[in-house]
């Protein structure tokens, strides 16, 4: 149906999409996880309430999240160029992806950690646990199922964003879909890329939920 150049291009598209999605998720967690923890800890009923820190984080996260991803992508071009040296291609796309993903991930982490039973945290405190112990030995452990479900949802969202970045030359499957499907009216290639994106999404979702349910000991 397709010649080998197109197949190769699609394979590279898959590779680039996986690269952007996984790298952005990883880096997103590098920033988002501490932010989520900080939000939970400094909230009014957290283990170390701190209104100024909470409010500042809250506002910054809301600001970034309220900018549509496509606009963020364009707004960040100078910053991306400064960091990566160019503003197109998959490595460059990782920069805005991380900026968009980190606050999203922070909210995911926050909501997971807030599900942890306050009674268990109190029990840990009564045993002489420090706040550090409570975060790393109680909250992150007790919330692990929910955290992994959150990561699964985040990875799906980032996959979608990475495809969106294709409109401005971001590389990957989204880029192919836009260039061939939109600019050249090659609907068949566009449909194949969409199908590939759906399959990738399904794989991430299935694996994520499987891990989460295997780790859940509450049943």
């Amino acid at each position: 149906m397709f010649d080998s150049t197109i197949i190769n291009m699609l394979l590279e598209g898959i590779r680039d999409t996986l690269y952007m999605t996984l790298a952005s998720t990883l880096l997103g967690y590098l920033f988002g996880l501490p932010m989520g923890i900080l939000l939970t800890v400094t909230d009014r009923d957290g283990i170390k309430p701190n209104a100024p820190v909470y409010k500042a984080l809250d506002v910054v996260i809301n600001m970034v999240r309220s900018v549509p991803f496509l606009i963020l992508l364009i707004l960040l071009i100078p910053f991306t160029r400064f960091l990566v040296g160019k503003s197109y291609g998959s490595t460059a796309t990782i920069v805005p992806l991380v900026v968009a993903a980190a606050p999203y991930i922070a909210r995911m982490v926050e909501s997971s950690l807030k599900e942890v039973d306050p009674g268990v945290i109190e029990a840990a405190r009564s045993m002489g646990a420090s706040n550090f112990d409570i975060i790393f030995k109680v909250m992150l452990v007790e919330a692990r199922t929910s955290l992994i479900i959150g990561a699964t949802i985040s990875i799906g969202t980032i996959l979608g964003y990475s495809a969106m970045a294709g409109t401005v030359g971001g590389g990957g499957l989204g880029d192919i879909a836009v260039r061939y499907g939109y600019h050249r009216w090659q609907t068949d290639i566009m449909l194949v890329t969409v199908a590939l994106l759906i399959i990738l999404f399904q794989i991430f979702q299935t694996i994520g939920m499987k891990i989460a349910s295997n780790l859940d000991k509450r049943k």
């Binding site: 268990v120 045993m127 002489g128 646990a129 780790l215 000991k217 509450r218």
Partner: peptide, 20 residues
Amino acid sequence: RKQRSDIAMIFQHFNLLMQK
């Protein structure tokens, strides 16, 4: 925190770590 290891506590809803 050190002193608290001398004063243990149990609760109405047990408060065990459910994932352990």
